[in-house]
Design a protein around this nucleic acid. Structure first.
Lengths: 324, 324
DNA sequence: ATAAATTGTGGAACGCGTTTCAGGTCAAGA
DNA sequence: TCTTGACCTGAAACGCGTTCCACAATTTAT
């Protein structure tokens, strides 16, 4: 396969002239431009993009770090990212890490090695200090509500949203409230647990450790929660659930086991996934796709201004349905 | 930021020696290896991955072409691809094309330009002839059941699966059957429409053109179908639906409008998404994640053997629930 | 003792495209 | 008429890492 030097040789021009034609630069005569284009076509020439990236020092590629694609929040977020990226001719390199820190570090190493121009962390297991090490290697955008001023971020106020859910359940007369979260380990998860503990204390309610359930990501996890619920000595009367899929699993299994929603068990969740409308679930609408769009915009702003570190916070909204 | 020449100069060795150390090659003395590693650490050196890709002539990156992420079949497929890729240290470059042919061509141009080592088409709008033009530029895997022997493919027999759905509805006494598809344009869609038309003719049933509904991808589309159904002069008694989300939307809206499932309207769909269990939908289980895994394996086989063009066909299974 | 193989190292070509700098010609402005 | 700017083109440096080939020393096998 031909390279630029061969094209130049056969067209009888210099490598610079060929490069000018390839890049639509001015100051190339019409005659020379045509003969170069003709030669390119005849040899079916296509330039090596690795060489272009190397010599330009930029790739127009952005890395996306997420734990899993197969989760409605992440697939919505990725959808927003991907659509905005397509509009801006940005290519996406996917890093599905499963929250493995060494995989997240690999993504950061790719940023350091100039394969990608920036990174968007949809969620992360790596510590903030680890991220700080890589701050100078290119724009890093965090899709999280964290107390930090080093990186631009896009998020909703998860703790406030969580409190809204708790307050809504309380306003409906529930005081014995359990929670289901995707994970118990992250900064945000710990904050939610704190918020939950604080609210129960306000209600003078005992905090039951078995009313804080982790590892709830999908529908099947929701079913498992109901098995757990059945065997609780002290049963809650309501659940605040991390996402609609889990809530739907819980409702499906609860009904199968003769419980009545919301009489025996009220359920409020997050996302406003279509399944929540299907199942009549009260939910807090999280604009994940719009978060994704904003993440790409934040990446571009940071690229233009390395000091840019705005925290973009999008609103959320409670949607009341039958499950509470 | 330092480059390999500077590392070599400061370590007092040649560029070759530094490269041997970076790549863990033999034939470097212990003494020289240590001084190179020390210099690398002192200067916080990291090599430019574009240069590595350029000089090696391979990137270990695979492009994934899909119309949208936010569709259960595609997100499941991508999940399978991503997990297998992570296992094999393959990086994924995402091309969310929205079925725009120019976007699909961009992905093929990236293959031709050596940015990626191969391409996996989850679905496509481009013609087969267009793909053939790019055949020699690297492995291309198709996630489709097409009559072709040029590219390896992974698929299920969609037309057989479709016929299974139709036969199931017929076995339950339905003859007035309508269909909902994601698209009406693709090769596979046309084959399904043909299969549908043939089956209705066997039943001596008239084919109503308004019983073939396209553009059904998500839950909202399903709701729209029910509006359409209400206004049909000749109503079908059953629907075979392209995916569970659409079916769920239909069921939700049908019940809201006072119809009874399956008495007034029987619904059978595809995928075996959790929502189908939630809603009690009879569905044909499509192993999308496994298709994804097989797609990466096919890519690797084709890389090793450019003549490899096996058609991998995975099984499907009817799961009977209440909606029929 | 000699030949062959292994070990160790460096120079420079190779992978390929962009950009800078220099030189020449022609046109426009002062 | 002279100066400056625009236009056109090419050589070579630059972006950066891998690999091949050559040479020398040491070890192993005959």
């Amino acid at each position: 396969m031909a390279n630029i030097r061969e094209i130049a040789r056969l067209a009888g021009v210099s490598v610079s002239t060929v490069s000018r034609v390839l890049n639509n630069h001015p100051y190339v005569s019409g005659e020379k431009r045509e003969i170069v284009l003709k030669t390119i076509q005849e040899l079916d020439y296509s330039r090596n993009i690795n060489a272009v990236h190397l010599s330009r020092g930029k790739t127009n590629m952005v890395g996306i770090v997420l734990p899993t694609i197969n989760h409605p929040y992440f697939s919505n977020l990725l959808d927003g990212i991907a659509e905005e990226a397509m509009q801006r001719n940005i290519q996406l390199v996917l890093f599905q890490t499963g929250y493995k820190q060494e995989k997240e570090l690999e993504a950061l190493e790719q940023l350091r090695g100039h394969l990608i121009d920036g990174l968007i962390f949809c969620s992360r297991a790596l510590s903030f200090n680890n991220l700080m090490i890589y701050k100078g290697f290119g724009p890093i955008v965090l899709c999280e509500d964290a107390d930090q001023k080093e990186f631009p971020s896009v998020s909703i106020k998860h703790v406030e949203a969580f409190n809204l859910g708790l307050d809504f359940l309380i306003s409906k007369g529930h005081e014995r409230i359990a929670i289901c979260l995707g994970r118990l380990e992250g900064t945000n998860s710990r904050k939610r647990q704190e918020a939950y503990t604080n609210k129960l204390e306000m209600l003078r309610q005992e905090v039951h450790s078995d009313w804080i359930i982790g590892d709830c990501l999908m529908f099947e996890d929701g079913k498992r929660v109901i098995h757990h619920f059945e065997n609780m000595p002290n049963k809650p009367s309501a659940f605040l659930v991390g996402n609609d899929q889990v809530a739907a699993g819980m409702i499906t299994e609860a009904i199968n086991r003769g419980f009545s929603i919301p009489d025996d068990l009220a359920i409020c969740s997050f996302d406003n996934h279509p399944v929540s409308e299907m199942m009549g679930i009260s939910t807090i609408d999280i604009p994940a796709k719009q978060l994704g769009t904003s993440a790409i915009q934040a990446f571009l702003k940071r690229t233009a201004d390395p000091g840019y570190a705005e925290k973009i916070v999008l609103p959320f909204e409670l949607i009341v349905r039958k499950s509470v």
